[in-house]
């Protein structure tokens, strides 16, 4: 069996792909979240805009971004395919099912949660990524800062203002908060599940991974969700 057919046709290979892409998306979320959290400095978006510039201009980040995109596409594609494929393994359905007796609802709803996140993602990319990378549909505003070490003037794109604009709309805020809910539950299963799939299940480490996963799945989405809320409320401006 070739590597590709192993990764995309064998049940265990496909799981492996989900886990590896999942873990890299988790890593991405962490970075993304840390950068976004800079808005809490409440410095008018200065740190955030610098961080955004770094992310936009650093060649390593830009290269990684390609893989990140690939990761997203594979995770989504393989995930949806698996959902439908797995569903087809039981053509005659149960008349009465009692899933809640043996598993968590979110572990059984990864396809649904993932799809919600996907919808959110499309919206989110349109709001920020498209405008920051391609300046579409309109140019971002610019902002001038005094560089701390040289004292000279620097002009940066003002992504922060874009956030303020987007989150002025209450519907956007609600959509983002809901997106974060989906993300939280998706992570609640996905984080530990990835380790299980990678074959890491150990009497003493698994409880640790599991608590870490729970903490991650709660904290990260809360931080993400807090940003639109506080911005909408004008606490951060």
């Amino acid at each position: 069996m070739g590597v590709m057919s192993f990764l995309f046709s064998s049940s265990l290979g496909r799981k492996l792909v989900m886990a590896v892409t999942g873990v890299s998306l988790i890593a991405f979320l962490l970075v993304h979240c840390l950068i976004n959290a800079t808005v809490f400095f409440n410095d008018g978006g200065k740190t955030f805009n610098y961080a955004a510039r770094f992310m936009a201009e650093n060649w390593l980040i830009r290269t990684t971004e390609i893989f990140l995109f690939l990761g997203f596409i594979i995770h989504i594609g393989q995930g949806l395919w698996l959902v439908f494929d797995n569903r087809a393994k039981r053509k005659a359905k149960y008349a009465k099912s009692a899933g809640s007796a043996n598993s968590k609802w979110y572990s059984r709803s990864m396809g649904l949660l993932g799809t919600l996140i996907l919808i959110f993602l499309v919206l989110h990319l349109k709001h920020f990524w498209v405008v920051s990378r391609f300046g579409m549909p309109h140019h971002l505003g610019e902002v001038q800062y005094v560089a701390s070490h040289t004292g000279s003037q620097e002009v940066l794109e003002n992504l922060f203002v874009e956030m303020v604009n987007v989150f002025a709309n209450p519907i956007a805020v609600i959509v983002y908060v809901l997106g974060c809910f989906s993300l939280a539950y998706h992570l609640l299963h996905g984080f530990t599940s990835a380790f299980q799939t990678l074959g890491i299940n150990h009497k003493s480490y698994t409880p640790l991974i599991s608590s870490l996963g729970t903490a991650f799945s709660i904290i990260i989405p809360i931080v993400f969700a807090a940003i639109p809320v506080v911005m909408h409320l004008g606490i951060i401006k």
Partner: peptide, 18 residues
């Protein structure tokens, strides 16, 4: 064993724990 399992038409595990 895994190849046979796949050939028999069982689904892939999604770690629900059921």
């Amino acid at each position: 064993m895994v190849n046979q399992m796949d050939a028999e038409g069982f689904g892939a595990c999604t770690n629900t724990g059921a």
